[in-house]
Amino acid sequence: MATALGTMRRAARTADMSVPLEWAFRRDFRAGSTRIVLAGGCPPDAEPLLAAVLRDGDVDAPLDLVIDLRDLPAVAVASAGTVIVPWAAARAGGPVLTVEPPTHAAGLLPAGPGRDPKGAPGRRRAHLNLPAHPDSPAAARRLVADRCRAWGRPGMMERAVIVTSELVSNAVEHAGTELDVTLVEQAGAVRVSVRDRAADRPDPAANGNLLAERGRGIPIVAALASDWGFVTVGDGKTTWAVVGGDLPADG
């Protein structure tokens, strides 16, 4: 499990709203979960920061995202809620979201099925933990092809397989660390994310030759995906891409 501290300052557990917001990302890579631990205070000027932390956590978490509020005083929880409530209500897919302690969840998460995206209709997920090994791209390709067939998305399978292969190949070659591959299908699109343990930023200009046999990298991801991006958080990064829309039957 790895921890990336958002700030090193130690804030007293107090209702003083001048105390700065602290956060930490704690990840269990084998389980595919990310925990955002909030502490200190949540003054009004920290709300944009909290919104950014939540967005990063939503991208970073492979399967499950936990917002841990146990170290926040009650007044700070109320302030954080002004950011968490609209953000949680507006989420479309992403990792399964929970809030701890459970007594806070009812007031912060949407009521009904939206509280647990596992139950949301039309949303399916798959996760694979892989080593930095030359065989890992092939394992990821098999997972994507299998899931696209099972999810009834054969028209986007070829693009999703290529995009995943490039993202995993880049992670194996350049990050050289253990990695997580996560697929989420919802609303006619497949989102692929690859989480590694190296904080170097992907270079969109690296190897722009789309006809190369390997290492085509980010340019081919950008060419095949409807959207892509990355987020770096302390000990690593998540690079993601969305493949949406079916190819023609003869494509």
Score class of each variant (00 low, 15 high):
Val144Trp: 06
Ala160Ile: 10
Arg141Leu: 11
Leu167Gln: 08
Met156Val: 06
Arg124Cys: 15
Ala126Lys: 02
Ser169Trp: 15
Val163Lys: 11
Pro131Lys: 01
Met157Glu: 13
Ala132Thr: 03
Arg159Pro: 02
Ser169Ile: 00
Glu158Ala: 12
Pro154Tyr: 00
Cys148Trp: 08
Arg142Ser: 04
Gly155Asn: 06
Gly119His: 07
Pro117Asp: 00
Gly155Thr: 04
Pro131Asn: 02
Ser136Pro: 05
Ser136Asp: 10
Arg159Thr: 06
Pro131Arg: 01
Ala126Cys: 11
Pro121Met: 06
Thr164Tyr: 04
Leu130His: 03
Gly152Val: 13
Pro117Val: 14
Ala160Gln: 07
Pro117Thr: 11
Glu158Asn: 11
Asp116Ile: 09
Asp135Tyr: 01
Ala160Val: 13
Ala160Cys: 07
Asp116Met: 09
Asn170Leu: 08
Asp146Ala: 14
Trp151Thr: 05
Gly122Tyr: 00
Arg149Ala: 15
Arg141Cys: 12
Arg147Gly: 00
Arg125Ser: 14
Glu166Pro: 01
Leu128Cys: 09
Ala138Val: 12
Arg123Ala: 14
Ile162Thr: 14
Ala145Gly: 14
Ala140Val: 02
Arg125Met: 14
Asp135His: 09
Leu128Arg: 15
Ser169Pro: 00
Arg159Glu: 13
Arg147His: 11
Arg115Glu: 08
Glu166Gly: 03
His127Glu: 08
Leu128Trp: 04
Leu128Met: 05
Ala160Gly: 04
Pro117Gln: 05
Leu130Glu: 05
Ala171Asp: 13
Leu130Thr: 03
Glu158Cys: 02
Leu130Arg: 02
Ile162Pro: 01
His127Ser: 07
Arg142Trp: 03
Ala171Arg: 07
His127Val: 05
Arg141Lys: 14
Ser169Gly: 13
Glu158Arg: 12
Ala140Tyr: 07
Trp151Ser: 09
Ala160Asp: 08
Ser165Lys: 11
Asp146Arg: 12
Lys118Phe: 11
Arg142Leu: 04
Ala120Lys: 03
Asp116Cys: 10
